[in-house]
């Protein structure tokens, strides 16, 4: 590596680093420090070291319940977004033969992304509610007598809202990596007598791996860091880690909230590093 190379590298990375130092590194440091401080119960922090915040957190049944429900929502949402995202991307890349149409349909699938997430979430209410479109249609056609209660303000509604919001973050990277698969590779496999499932298993899936990994990173980090979807769509029945942590912030209990945040951050980092281990995202996307 030449000295010049290093200098231009740092020169070009400077704006990114200038943002990351105060707004990520220092920020995380502040949260970390706060998590070890005592609090006076009135919004003040006392500068003395304690592990009490972590002990309280880990002793609380609520914490474990919240993490369990986080795991449940993460897995369900990940499966939902991955299955839909993969097949939608596959359809657009390999089945739509007109490239202009393919891009057009791709945009059609991404347009709702440009509107407010909160609005998109509440837009399920007139559909899923007790008096909503689905229930009233089912009742009018005589399929059911009583409205289906599980549709809204339930775990089901939470997963629907997550998948609705986040599938796009799966489609875009998978579409991107699939679009770069050389169609001649598939031709060659066909000529060599490969079946549809063999092509899928040995060509399409391995070459889409970086897209799948990137999409999984987006989706999982957003579910784990979610503030409002669980809160609203579960109807107050359950909460996310972040919304629970915000309850502490709302009453100015910073140190317990900070301890909670640090634990969550560790969990997120572990999950994301597991994904990053399966695929070298940087090498894959810059290749």
């Amino acid at each position: 590596m030449t000295d010049r190379n290093r200098k231009t590298g740092w020169f070009f990375a400077a704006p990114l680093v200038v943002v990351l130092i105060p707004f990520f590194i220092a920020t995380i440091a502040v949260v970390l420090i706060a998590s070890f401080l005592e609090h006076d119960g009135f919004g003040g922090m006392i500068a003395s070291f304690t592990l009490e915040n972590y002990a309280d957190l880990l002793r609380s049944d609520l914490t474990w319940k919240l993490y369990l429900s986080m795991v449940k929502f993460s897995v369900l949402t990940w499966i939902g977004t991955l299955v839909i995202g993969f097949w939608v991307a596959y359809f657009l890349v390999f089945h739509v033969r007109n490239p202009l149409l393919s891009i057009g349909l791709f945009l059609l699938g991404t347009v709702p992304f440009w509107t407010s997430n909160i609005i998109r979430m509440i837009s399920w209410i007139p559909l899923l509610g007790k008096e909503g479109l689905i229930n009233s249609t089912l009742r009018a056609t005589g399929v059911i007598d009583e409205p289906l209660e599980f549709l809204l303000f339930s775990d089901f509604a939470v997963v629907v809202a997550y998948v609705h919001q986040l599938t796009i973050f799966m489609i875009v990277p998978i579409f991107n990596s699939m679009a770069r698969i050389d169609k001649r590779t598939i031709e060659a496999a066909l000529d060599a007598g490969a079946t549809r499932s063999e092509i899928m298993r040995w060509i399409v899936v391995p070459l889409s791996k970086s897209g799948i990994a990137l999409g999984s990173i987006f989706v999982l980090s957003m579910v784990m860091g979610d503030f409002f979807v669980v809160k609203v769509m579960s109807g107050g029945g359950s909460a996310s880690i972040v919304s629970a942590l915000f309850e502490d912030i709302a009453v100015l209990q910073y140190p317990p909230a900070a301890a909670n945040a640090v634990v969550l951050l560790i969990v997120v980092v572990v999950v994301i590093s597991l994904i990053l281990r399966t695929v070298d995202v940087r090498k894959e996307i810059t290749r």
Partner: peptide, 15 residues
């Protein structure tokens, strides 16, 4: 950079 991308938004906001 990846860390900053995946960190829960509210946590960064609080910090």
């Amino acid at each position: 950079m990846i860390g900053s991308l995946v960190a829960p938004g509210l946590v960064l906001g609080i910090g």
